[in-house]
């Protein structure tokens, strides 16, 4: 089954401070889309609204034509997996238990055969098998991020939302995580929507970029369309050189625009 994600006129405000304004968007199944934009442009808020962690003031989010506000918590959890920015873990679980949490929407009390099979497949897919018995606190940043993704995958979602999945990772682990997402989209036809800060990583890994500016979509489309020097100057206030080669679009930031912040 493939599920289409559509957002229609989404608005959200924190204490009458508007954060998102009339955001409308559609993402095809099997597509990797990345939300980019400067700090405070509403990227994470948008993702949290999609995961129904925040309730939008206006607008509707459709999963396969169904309004998500009409879905039960459990059935939403089986459609949509959300990986937040590194969460705090007060009481560390082992890797196996942490991934098993993703089965919570399917479990009432006992852990069944299918739950174990799903967890074991995901552990193998993300090469976490040797770590299964380790507590999360003993893992490196890259390993932790893979566990977080594994947990979301254990929900067997059709759509994966990730909030800055590459932050705090070195470049090798950044590429590793993005490689995982690419193979999920390609092999399992999963829809991936994430927030990234790094424009080059975003351009490399996504078919579609969504550039947010002050709570509105400023531009969206292929990396070539979105990442122009003009767009970057307007939205980020930065002069940048944009190059095109066999690996796609590359952005080289030069200096803050308008000579501001010249110290």
């Amino acid at each position: 089954m493939v599920v289409k994600l559509a957002v229609d006129g989404l608005s959200f405000s924190y204490d009458s401070q508007p954060v998102l304004n009339e955001v409308t968007l559609a993402i095809d199944p099997g597509e990797i889309a990345t939300i980019i934009g400067p700090n405070g442009s509403g990227k994470s808020t948008f993702l949290r609204c999609l995961a129904r962690i925040l309730l939008p003031a206006q607008g509707v989010i459709y999963l396969d034509g169904r309004n998500i506000t009409n879905l039960s918590g459990r059935s939403l959890a089986t459609l949509l997996g959300y990986v937040p920015q590194e969460g705090t873990k007060v009481f560390p679980l082992t890797v196996y238990e942490a991934v098993l949490l993703g089965r919570r929407p399917y479990i009432t009390w006992a852990v069944g055969q299918k739950d174990r099979r799903v967890v074991e497949e995901i552990l193998r897919f993300l090469q976490l098998e040797p770590l299964a018995g380790k507590p999360l606190t003993n893992l490196s940043g890259g390993e932790k991020q893979r566990v977080m993704i594994a947990r979301a995958l254990a929900q067997e979602p059709k759509i994966l939302l990730l909030d800055e999945p590459t932050s705090n990772l070195d470049i090798r682990h950044q590429l590793e995580v993005l490689g995982i997402l690419e193979s999920l989209a390609r092999k399992k036809n999963m829809t991936v929507l994430m927030v990234l800060h790094d424009l080059n990583l975003a351009a490399r890994s996504s078919q579609k970029l969504v550039l947010l500016h002050q709570g509105r979509i400023f531009a969206s489309g292929s990396p070539q369309v979105v990442l122009t020097p003009e767009n970057i100057r307007t939205v980020y206030d930065v002069e940048a050189r944009v190059r095109q080669d066999d690996l796609g679009v590359q952005v080289l930031p030069i200096s803050p625009a308008n000579g501001r912040a010249k110290l």
Partner: peptide, 20 residues
């Protein structure tokens, strides 16, 4: 118990897992 386990992984994770 399961809800508490989910909450242990963070509020946002618990919310995504369908915990009220």
């Amino acid at each position: 118990s399961w809800d508490l386990n989910a909450l242990g992984a963070g509020e946002e994770v618990a919310a995504n897992l369908g915990v009220n």
